[in-house]
Each structure stands twice: as structure tokens, then as C-alpha cells.
Design a binder for these strands. Structure first.
Lengths: 200, 200, 200, 200
DNA sequence: TATGAATGAGCGTTCATTCAT
DNA sequence: CATGAATGAACGCTCATTCAT
């Protein structure tokens, strides 16, 4: 007797709930500071139930890190590196990335922890790294396009791409103390400078 | 019976030794992954001795984080915001910062962890934050100087300063995977773009 | 609505299947090492079904231990203590017992565990003990018969019976390492010596 | 500053105490039924102290099993297989073994559990097995000696040795229910029968 | 009857901290 | 001051059992 549709639905919701509260806790308290007990209490389920949905703490952490990647991947990569108007494309891209990164508060805090301890979380780190490489590569192509069309000054395109993604990460880090929002408007224009736009 | 000079010397060396091995361990294994036993073994002293020099684990961590600040503070802040040649000053400053950050491998790994977990380490975070504010403020003044002398384009100076320090941090983070060294030469010129240098 | 004949059959088969796989697992992994989940997987039935057939884990274990007793009881006790030819009867009996014990590999492993932990499994142990007493008593009568007919030397009959059954158990124990088969032919003759046969 | 002699003494006593209460508990409750908490309570020390003396539960169990071997090895093997009077040597040997086995109540209960679950305790089992082989081999040599001197009937000496050690183990097992003492006097003479003594 | 998600007590183990020596 | 044994709270995890479907 397989599970009814309703039960299946319920489980899906429960799993998502666990992931949500775990994301919050991992971001706030770190991997070690987050205990299964705290997760179960925050999700208002029993201790043992966490293990029904995730084999162990590591699997829960891995899911928290990896599953969102697919969700925001499309958003982050939704720019056209072959655009006829690279400068405009760039501007739109920066806007979008600032918005996305501003919304990923908790998630990025976890990312920072993984990078700071990447030896401890090799699988999760590998996934993030793979995404990052893809991201950087696509930015590079847009930079090349802009340079070819002579609307961007000549710089090593991969260097520019690396610095752009680094800046996004760095802004996130430097914004933790919430005394100032990292992602205010003036940031976008200064970020554009990195690409060396040529005034027409 | 007061301690002899020799004893005093010896204790000082022991304390420094503990801090050094602890820095390495905290950077590599994280706060929770670093145990007092591991520290004592790496320093080849007895377990109990660690507590002779540091009240508890937290105090050791705090010392590891805070004490080096004074040491590199002077280096990092050794640029002249009132320079007559802001562009040249900027270039020299970037060079120096890149060099310093490249040499602080372990320490910056710990900084990343603290920022990612700032709620957990409020005092250490506050110290780092205070330094960061001072750093940013001084960069801002150099930017203002450059803009006044019309060798830098007009942008909000604080924004530029924030993005510069963010970029330094972000580069550090994105360099962990050792496939590429974050601090290669081409980075310096692209970094300069952020400030919007005006071609003469 | 009563169960159909077919359903009843099906349930009987399922119950036997559970007992079989549980015997194998209890023998190999011990009581604690055997989990209901493993039993259900080995029997290719659902986890919950095990509880349909056995109230709890203890009941399953009890059934595994006690139910086979009836099955081999007749075999083990099928010798005639009043035989006119006690020496021949003895030889046949030893042969049969060696054969039976050699075939009860898994079961005897469980018996050994129960005896080693008899405080933990009092009911199961009591059943085994009762059988053992009956067994020993019947052997004793055959020994008395042989002594009366002066084909066995004079020894305390109960002592001989006890040592005989002890030897059967002990052989089983010493045979676990499968480097030598405990139940090879030469054993039977040496076993016979225990009874003190008088050469005619 | 190394530990003082007194402290060393104290630790030795504590370690022995833990081994003693653990032996009792393992024999009575089995490996799984024995918890570190129970051990610490029985030894009247703190929970954590058990781990000061034994790395983990498995190491404690291993020590309980292996360390006594050396202690009784000499006793068990203290017979002369080349004796000029094999029959007398045999009688003395049996007496001694009966006495030793009768005194190893708890220990032999543990041995039985290990044999019954030898896959689970491979190292401990290997040690016991090695001792058993040595034991059996030496008994075999005494049997050969007796056969050569024609005071024992001709039987395969290794078979006789195997059955003798099996009988010792089996008696131990069959004596658990304390309704009768396995090691009463009459046992020794019947045991002697196994070797096939030739009346002079 | 069959199923498997839900539960939480209880386990082994770690480790910061204390303190007698 | 140096040492390391002693302590026990807190962790991750397992699994027999229950029960809604």
C-alpha cells in the first residue's frame, strides 16, 4: 500500500520546512552550533523525524547548500553574453545580481562558512565551486564581447570576471553588520567601473 | 618570589608558540574542530599549560584574532590620503594591500569564519569591524582627494571605499581553491578601474 | 468477514519466511545486531508487517528459539533406552546426534547465545533447559540399561549423560571456526569411550 | 612533571577495578546490555573516567577478554606431555582443568558469547582461538605419549584432544543453571574415559 | 491486513574545564 | 608554573514501537 497523494504532499512540505529552518540555523549558528534538536524544535517536529528526511546531519547540510543552487542558477545566469549592446546587458546583469545577492542573506552566510572551511565540506564546496566557475566563464564571454565591440577597455577578460564575482561575494561579507545595506543603488555604478566602460 | 628574567622570556615564547599553532589550527579546522588537546600537541606542551596562558578556549581564539591586528594595521594604513599624487598613491596602496592580503592566508581564513559567524564571536567581530571602518574611512579620504584633484571620476567616495575593501575580502575568498592565485599582477590594474582613474 | 483459505495459507507462509530469515540473522548478528528493519528487508516484506506476525522483537526471538524444538525433539529422542542391545543402540544414537547437531548450524549458534545470556532470555532458556533435562534423563536410562547388562563400566549414569550432552554442545562451540569440521567420523568412536564400553 | 608513584598506583588499581566490574557486567548482561554508564556506576567512578582508561567500549571489552588469557595460560598449560607416567599426568591435568574452569565462571560466559558471535568480535576471537589451538596441541602430545607407552588405547590423538577441550567448554555451558555443579568429583573419572585408559 | 512515517529514550563518544599533585 | 586525570553536559545517531492511512 503506497503512500496516498496527501501523505506525499505532507512529507514534501515537511522536508521543505526542515530545509528552511536548517538554513536559518546553519547561517546563524554555524554547522557545529546547529544541533538536530534545535532543528527539530524550530520545525516543530520530533527529533527522530529529522532523520526520516535526512540520513544524517551532513546530508541535511549538503541539501541545504546544494538544492538552492538549481533554483537561483537560472536567475544568475540569465544574461546574454552575445548581446548586441554589451554595456546595456552589463548594466542589467549587475542590477539583477545585486538584487539576487541581497535576497540570499542566509544562504550566502553559509557559503562563506563553507569556503572558510572548505576542507571540511569537500562535496558542498565542489558544487559551489562548479557553479562559480560556470558563472565566471559566462561573465568572461560578455566581457570579451564588450571588448570586441570596443565599448569596454582592454583588460584580461577572465581577470575582470573573477574580480566581479569576488566583489559580489565581498560585498555580501562586508554587509553582515547591517549597519549599512551593501546593496544600495550607488553600488551598481561603481561596480560598472570595474569593467572599464568606454564613454561614447 | 618573582619570576626571573629567563622565566619571563620563556613564558613569552611559549605564549607566542601557542598562538601560532592555534592560528594554523583555527584556520584549518575551524573553531569547533580545534581542540585544546590538538593545540597542546602541536605546540608540544602539556594539555594543562594552555590554560595557564589563556583562560579558556574563547580567550585563546580572541587573542588569535585580535593580537595580529595591531601588527598589520600600520602596514595596511600606511598610505597618505592627502598625497599630492593620488593616482600614484593609489597604485602603490593597491600593490601593498594585494601583497599583505596574499601573505595573510591563515589569518584571513579565520576572519572569514568570524564574519560568517559574527553572532557567535561578537567581541572578535567588533574588533575586526572597527579596524575595517578605520581602513575604509582612510581609503575614502584618498578617493575624495583624487576626485578633488580631478584625477578620479565623480562617485560616492564611501561607496568606492566600501567596494574596494569588499573586493579585497572577496578575492581572498575566491582564492581558496588554489587553482589560480588570486593575487596575480593583472588584478591590480583592474582593481584600479574601480576608482575611475581619469586618463591624462 | 473471515479470511479465505488462500489468505490463511499466505499468512502462514509469510510467518515461516520471517522466522527463517530471522533465524539466520539472529545467528549471524546476535539479538541486538538484528533489527526489525533488516528482518523485513531480508524477508522482502514491509517493516510494519513483522509486527503483524509477532507482537514485538522479543516474541519473534522466542518463536525462533522455541518452535524448532518440537521439530527436532522427536529425532533427538528417537532411541530406545530399554534396548536389548545397549551398545548398538548407543552407537546408532551417537551417529544420529552427530548428524542432527551438524545440521543445526544456525540454530545452535543462537542456543549458545541464549545460554551465554540466560538471564536476559529466561523464557527461551527455560524451554531449552527443559528439553535438555528430558534429553539427559533419557540418555541416563540407556546408560543404566547398559550397565545392568554389563556392557558398560560402572559410572554414575547421570554424570555420563551430562557429559555426553555437554560434549555435543562443546563440539558445536569449538567448530565455529570452520577450519575443521567438528563432526567428522572419528569423533563418534571417541565419544563412545565416554560411556565406557566393555570389550567382549 | 610526571605522575607520582602514588598516582600511578592509584590509576593501576582503578583500571583493574574497571576491568573487574566490566567482566561481571559483560558476563551477566552481554556486550550490548552492558553500558558505559553501568560500568562507571558499578566502579563508582565518573562516566568520563572510563574513557580515560579505555579508548572506547570495544577496547574495554577486548581488554576484558584478552588480558586474563596470559594469567591463566600458564596454569592451563602446566602439564608435561612427555611425562614418564602419562596416566597419572592425565589425571592431574584433568583435576587442574576442572578446578580452573570452575573458577572462571564469568570469564567463560563471555567466551561463550564471543564464540557465538565471533564475526562481531574478530580480534578477541582470534586471541581465544590461538590459545585454544595451543592448548589442544599440547593435549594431543600427551595423548600420543600415552598411546606410545600403551597405557591409552589407539585413537586419533587430535580428535581426542579436540573432544577433551570441547567437553570442558560444553560442561561450562551446561552448568549455567547452577542447579547442579558441573564440576563435581565424578566428572573427572568419566572424563578420563575419553582418553581410553588401559587397565593394568 | 499492510504500510512506513513519527516518536523519543537511550546509547557511545567528545571535550572544555577543573584541580590535586 | 606544569601536568594530566577527573568530570559530566551535550552531541549525533539508532531503533523498537505506535498508529494513521
Amino acid at each position: 500500500m503506497p503512500l496516498s497523494e496527501k501523505q506525499r504532499e505532507n512529507m514534501k512540505r515537511k522536508r521543505t520546512l526542515i530545509l528552511d529552518v536548517a538554513t536559518e540555523l546553519f547561517a546563524t549558528l554555524g554547522y557545529e552550533g546547529t544541533t538536530i534538536k534545535k532543528v527539530s524544535e524550530a520545525a516543530e517536529i520530533s527529533f527522530g523525524s529529522v532523520f526520516t528526511y535526512f540520513k544524517d546531519k551532513e546530508a541535511l547540510f549538503y541539501a541545504v547548500v546544494v538544492e538552492p543552487i538549481e533554483a537561483f542558477k537560472n536567475d544568475v545566469l540569465s544574461f546574454n553574453p552575445e548581446s548586441e549592446e554589451p554595456l546595456i546587458e552589463l548594466k542589467i546583469m549587475i542590477d539583477r545580481h545585486m538584487t539576487i545577492y541581497a535576497s540570499l542573506q542566509n544562504y550566502l552566510m553559509i557559503v562563506v562558512q563553507i569556503i572558510g572551511q572548505h576542507n571540511k565540506y569537500p562535496e558542498a564546496f565542489a558544487k559551489l565551486d562548479a557553479f562559480h566557475d560556470q558563472f565566471r566563464e559566462k561573465v568572461k564571454r560578455l566581457v570579451e564581447n564588450g571588448q570586441n565591440k570596443q565599448v569596454l577597455i582592454d583588460q584580461d577578460p577572465m581577470t575582470v570576471a573573477t574580480m566581479y564575482t569576488s566583489l559580489l561575494s565581498g560585498l555580501r561579507i562586508n554587509s553582515v553588520d547591517s549597519r549599512y545595506s551593501a546593496f544600495q543603488g550607488s553600488f551598481n555604478e561603481t561596480t560598472m567601473q570595474l569593467f572599464g566602460p568606454i564613454k561614447q
